[in-house]
Simulated scan of single mutants.
Amino acid sequence: MRPQQNDYVLVSPDLLVQLMERTGDGRPVSVRELARVASCSHSKIGHLRTGERETATHDEALAIARRLGVDLLVLWKPIGRTIEAPAESQHLAAVSA
């Protein structure tokens, strides 16, 4: 049974920004390109970068990590028994993903 829609918590918004500036292949990746690869909205990537949002589904987290050229657990922590899901802010909780 999956704990929620959101399976992973971002380790650090700053780390995401740094990895986007210099990916595993040495080139930067844009917010829109990362959103396309992860099959999510570019605003979700923007919110992850600023820390306004901390969570992503397993498929999104895996796609983002692969595009950036890092292992999944370098950038993400799985939500489960030892890591609780963060409370989403009210304005984000009211909007469907």
Results as ranks from 00 to 15, higher is better:
28 P>T: 02
25 D>R: 12
16 L>K: 00
13 P>D: 07
59 D>Y: 10
31 V>I: 11
34 L>M: 11
74 V>Q: 10
49 R>A: 09
78 P>K: 11
33 E>Q: 13
97 A>K: 05
48 L>P: 07
77 K>M: 06
56 A>H: 00
56 A>M: 09
76 W>L: 06
38 A>G: 11
19 L>G: 00
38 A>D: 04
71 D>K: 00
30 S>R: 10
92 L>H: 14
66 R>A: 09
76 W>E: 03
16 L>G: 02
58 H>K: 13
53 R>Y: 08
16 L>P: 03
5 Q>R: 11
70 V>F: 06
37 V>I: 15
34 L>K: 08
80 G>L: 01
67 R>L: 04
60 E>W: 01
62 L>Y: 05
1 M>V: 12
30 S>H: 07
8 Y>N: 06
2 R>H: 10
20 M>H: 09
5 Q>D: 10
57 T>Y: 01
42 H>T: 15
19 L>T: 09
18 Q>E: 15
29 V>C: 09
23 T>A: 11
69 G>T: 05
30 S>G: 03
8 Y>R: 12
81 R>G: 03
11 V>A: 10
84 E>D: 04
97 A>P: 01
21 E>R: 14
40 C>S: 08
34 L>Y: 07
58 H>Y: 01
57 T>M: 02
78 P>Q: 08
19 L>C: 01
7 D>Y: 08
17 V>K: 10
22 R>G: 10
18 Q>V: 13
36 R>G: 10
85 A>P: 03
29 V>L: 02
19 L>I: 04
18 Q>R: 15
21 E>T: 08
33 E>I: 06
47 H>F: 07
61 A>H: 11
68 L>N: 07
78 P>W: 13
7 D>I: 07
27 R>P: 02
8 Y>M: 09
86 P>E: 03
45 I>V: 15
16 L>M: 08
47 H>V: 12
49 R>G: 00
78 P>C: 03
8 Y>I: 06
23 T>W: 12
70 V>Q: 05
35 A>I: 12
74 V>W: 00
43 S>Y: 08
6 N>E: 13
21 E>P: 11
43 S>M: 14
94 A>P: 02
45 I>H: 00
7 D>H: 13
4 Q>S: 14
69 G>W: 01
14 D>E: 15
4 Q>A: 14
34 L>I: 09
38 A>T: 09
40 C>I: 15
4 Q>N: 12
26 G>W: 02
5 Q>L: 06
31 V>S: 12
53 R>S: 05
32 R>W: 08
28 P>Y: 01
25 D>Q: 11
88 E>M: 12
29 V>H: 04
6 N>Y: 15
31 V>M: 11
20 M>R: 10
36 R>H: 13
32 R>I: 02
20 M>E: 00
87 A>I: 15
25 D>H: 11
4 Q>R: 00
6 N>S: 06
